[in-house]
Simulated assay, not measured.
Amino acid sequence: MSSFYHAIHFRCTAIAVLAFIFLSAMKVWAQNDVTFPLVIDSVKSNPIPNGYHYEMWKQPAGTVKMTVYNQDATFDVEWSNIQNFVARVGLKYDETKTHKEIGVFTAEVEFQKGQIRNGLAYFGIYGWTVEPLVEYYVMEDWQDWRPRAGDGMHTLVGTINVDGSDYEVITRQMKQQPSVKGTQDFPQVFSIRKNTRASGTISISNHFNKWEDMGIDLGKLYEVKIKVESYSGNNNGSGSCKVTKGKILVDGIPTSIQPICDDFSAKRQNFTGLNSTNGTYTLISLSGQKISSIASDLSQPPVFSKNNVSPGIYLLQSKLNGVTLQTRQWVVK
Rank of each mutant, 00 (worst) to 15 (best):
W29M: 14
A73D: 11
T13G: 14
W79I: 05
V68T: 03
N275W: 12
F75S: 01
E101K: 09
C261M: 13
V130G: 14
N50S: 13
D217P: 06
L120Y: 03
I291W: 00
V228D: 13
V43R: 12
G90Q: 09
Y167F: 01
A61K: 07
Y222A: 03
V89A: 07
Q258F: 11
V189W: 00
I291S: 03
F271C: 11
F10Y: 13
W57I: 11
Q173A: 13
T255L: 10
D163Y: 07
S230H: 09
G51T: 04
Y5V: 04
K225R: 06
S293C: 10
V68W: 01
I291H: 02
K247I: 04
F186Y: 08
Q317M: 05
R11W: 11
V134I: 12
V331A: 12
P302F: 09
D76S: 13
W330V: 10
P60Q: 03
Q173C: 01
Y281H: 08
I257W: 03
D213A: 15
I313A: 13
E229T: 04
L133D: 02
K247L: 07
N32L: 13
H6G: 01
I253K: 01
V28K: 12
I102P: 01
M1T: 09
F264P: 04
V169H: 02
I216W: 04
Y222L: 07
T63H: 10
I226S: 06
I226M: 09
S287Q: 11
K245A: 14
G164L: 08
P47A: 02
L325T: 12
Y126Q: 07
P147K: 14
A87T: 04
C261I: 04
R11K: 12
K92I: 01
L286Y: 01
T183L: 06
I216S: 09
K210C: 02
D94Q: 06
N81W: 06
N275E: 15
P132S: 06
Y167I: 03
N46G: 00
Q177E: 09
I204T: 08
L91H: 05
K97N: 15
S305L: 11
S165F: 03
K27W: 09
W211I: 08
N118F: 15
H6Y: 13
F186S: 00
F186P: 00
V228T: 03
Y136P: 04
Y54I: 00
K227M: 10
G215H: 11
W211F: 14
K306F: 01
T327R: 07
V104Q: 14
S42G: 05
M66T: 04
S165N: 02
S296E: 02
F4K: 11
F85Q: 14
N46Q: 15
K97W: 06
A107V: 04
P311Y: 02
G51P: 05
K181T: 05
R146N: 05
E223K: 06
C241K: 01
